[in-house]
């Protein structure tokens, strides 16, 4: 017995633990970087310049940037109230509503496009169309992007508001605020980071949206062609160089947005703003 008590516990090295985790994680990171590098090696500055000179692709770049930004703003306008209400209140049917909010995330993108198209074939849909044409126009591009991107923004804002303690809000109420004032002065400033994350997610999702746009908006050059459509159209005529060059433009644009939002969302820049 006393032998057992005095026997020292031998603790094995932590090295294998970190080694295995590092290898598994590292492989994935390597694949991500390799993918982008492969695109880079496949193309030349000449290809990219040629792409930039193409009037149709210029239009696609412009349309992508404008629609993604509108989609991002719309997503924020919608996701902030939904996220707040879902995080703060319990009500009948909340779990059901929660499931509905996930539908755009789990539905295959093509199905979303088809459903939108069919929605505008119903009587109310046709009525709207007869006054204000939506399908196969740039408006349909924004709607197709928004339907998916907003779901991701809603998730982000829901988590953001859930993590903000309700106490500060209650104190604000006791100090003389109504709900709107407490929300504006106390809750929103705490949600800045979440809002920027939701914005960047929505923007990036919108940029990559293809399936719903193809079905709901078509792939008409100089009209509803966004950058993913360009990649598809160039590939389908065998112009891989142009497709890769456009892909690189999208990668760079995505990076630029993510990095700038991360920067503005970082503690450092928030401090300097205040």
């Amino acid at each position: 017995m006393s032998n057992l008590v005095h026997k020292k516990l031998k603790v094995k090295s932590d090295f294998p633990f970190f080694l295995i985790m590092g290898i598994v994680g590292g492989t994935y990171v390597f694949l991500i970087v390799a993918m982008v590098l492969a695109d880079l090696t496949f193309t030349t500055p000449g290809h990219i310049f040629a792409v930039f000179k193409d009037e149709e692709i210029q239009y696609a770049i412009k349309l992508s940037m404008i629609t993604c930004t509108i989609t991002m703003l719309l997503s924020l306008v919608v996701s902030i109230p939904i996220g707040y209400l879902m995080a703060r209140y319990d009500f009948w049917g909340k779990r059901f509503l929660d499931a509905i909010l996930d539908i755009p995330i789990v539905l295959p993108p093509l199905v979303i496009g088809l459903s939108l198209l069919i929605m505008f074939q119903t009587a109310p849909g046709r009525f709207i169309e007869s006054h204000f044409r939506i399908t196969y126009t740039v408006y349909s591009v924004v709607i197709a992007q928004f339907m998916v991107a907003c779901a991701f923004a809603v998730r982000t804002m829901y988590v953001t508001f859930s993590q903000i303690d309700v106490r500060q809000e209650q104190v604000a109420l006791s100090l003389g605020c109504n709900k709107a004032q407490a929300f504006h002065h106390v809750v929103l400033p705490q949600a800045t980071k979440g809002i920027l994350t939701a914005a960047s997610l929505a923007w990036a999702r919108a940029l990559g949206e293809f399936g719903p746009i193809l079905i709901f908006s078509g792939a008409t050059r100089m009209r509803t062609e966004v950058l993913p459509t360009t990649v598809f159209l160039e590939m389908s005529v065998g112009n891989i160089e142009a497709a890769v060059a456009v892909s690189l433009i999208m990668i760079l644009a995505g990076f630029a947005v993510l990095i700038s939002l991360r920067y503005f969302g970082s503690e450092k820049s928030l401090k300097s703003v205040r």
Binding site: R167, Q170, L175, N178
Partner: peptide, 17 residues
């Protein structure tokens, strides 16, 4: 409403803004 009661409230953890 809480705002109309004129009661000062100090919660447990302070809950400073």
């Amino acid at each position: 409403k809480p705002a109309e009661r004129e009661i000062g409230y100090v919660p447990q953890d302070g809950a400073l803004f």
